[in-house]
Computed example of a mutant assay.
Amino acid sequence: MKLNAFEKRVVQHPLRVWLQHKIEAPLLMSMLPKPMASFQHALEIGCGFGQGIEVIRAHFGAERVTAVDLDIDMVAAAKARWHQDARALPGINFSVADGCQLPFATAQFDIVFNFAVFHHIPDWQVAVAEVVRVLKPGGFFVIEDLYRLAICNPLSRRLFDHPQHNRFTHIMLLDALEQAGFSIICQRNLLNLAGMILAQKPCEVRPHGLIPLAA
């Protein structure tokens, strides 16, 4: 589901950008094992106006970033922003794409980012499966998202356009990740309103599915 006009203004607000760089990015980075791995190719699902790309490059050091969004206007805005920036080339690519049908080869990315996007996706479990598919074995899935309690309430329904059915809690998201084959490396839950999760695709793969690294 696309953002409405109000939410588009919110995600572009300087305070939102400041929070993402000064608070959220350090918290997300702190969940990664140390020393931090080198990430050659990153995928951002739901790139919006392109702020997440800067976080991925500045904080996680990804050499290449592929950014996708369902909204063609958002992709155009992000592309225009980064093509005006001398830091953008080479290494940044944009696509209009559905998180449930990612147009990429299997095992293509070292790390995938979800900056508060999956709560917009009606069939978010399908998107989780797509992330498993496009990640390389050993790759990481970095998640920060909003939960049912934050979006299925009268105030949120008045201000934003979010799906109201098949919404998830922190525990439901953790369960879906593990059922898809991920190992949970680190997780934080903020009063079941929002949370952060670092998940990893195991390095060992069997014909009938993924197995944990310790198996």
Rank of each mutant, 00 (worst) to 15 (best):
G181P: 01
E178Y: 01
R158E: 10
E144Y: 09
I143R: 00
A67V: 11
P26E: 09
F109K: 02
A97G: 02
L173T: 13
H119T: 12
M36K: 11
E178G: 10
S30W: 04
L32Y: 07
A42V: 07
L177F: 06
N166P: 00
N93F: 10
C186A: 15
H165S: 08
I111W: 00
H41C: 04
V142Q: 03
N153R: 11
G181E: 03
M74Y: 03
G139F: 01
D161E: 13
Y147D: 08
R158S: 14
G139I: 00
G99E: 09
G195V: 00
I23L: 15
E144L: 14
H165M: 06
A62T: 01
S156W: 05
E44T: 08
A37M: 09
N192R: 05
Q200W: 10
V128N: 01
F94K: 07
A214R: 08
Q125A: 13
L43F: 07
G46Q: 01
H208M: 14
H41Y: 03
Q108I: 12
F94S: 02
R133S: 04
A88M: 03
I45C: 06
G61H: 05
G99D: 06
F141T: 03
K8I: 12
S38F: 09
N153S: 11
H162P: 00
C152D: 14
F140P: 01
P103S: 04
W18N: 08
L174M: 12
M36T: 13
N93A: 15
L28W: 04
R158I: 14
A88H: 00
P26N: 11
K136M: 04
L210M: 13
P26W: 05
I151P: 02
I53M: 06
Q179W: 07
I111E: 05
A176H: 03
I72E: 14
H162Q: 10
A80P: 00
L149E: 12
N114S: 11
A86W: 03
D175L: 13
I197D: 03
P122Q: 06
G48C: 05
A67G: 06
V112T: 11
L173Y: 13
L19I: 15
A127L: 03
Q164A: 08
A127E: 01
T169K: 04
A77C: 09
F109T: 02
H119V: 14
V112D: 02
L32T: 07
R81E: 04
V132P: 01
